[in-house]
Amino acid sequence: MKRKLAIFFYFLIILPVLVHAEPRYSISLENSPFIGSEKAPVTIIEFIDYQ
C-alpha cells in the first residue's frame, strides 16, 4: 500500500515538477545593445544573424 502511494505521488507531484523545471541559462547582458526599458521584468536575449 505504501509503495503504491509512493508511486502515485511520484506521478502526481514529483514528475510534473521535474518535467517543468527547464534549465535557465545565466547570460551576461553587460555591454550589449537592448531595446525596451532597462528594468523590464522579462528579458529576451536574441542571437541574430541579419542576413
Binding site: 526599458s37 523590464a40 529576451i44 541574430i48
Partner: peptide
Amino acid sequence: GKVKLVVKFFPYRYRDH
C-alpha cells in the same frame, strides 16, 4: 515596459553580408 530585447550578434561565417 514589461519586456526588454537584448541583442547578441551571431553572423554565420559563410554568408556574404
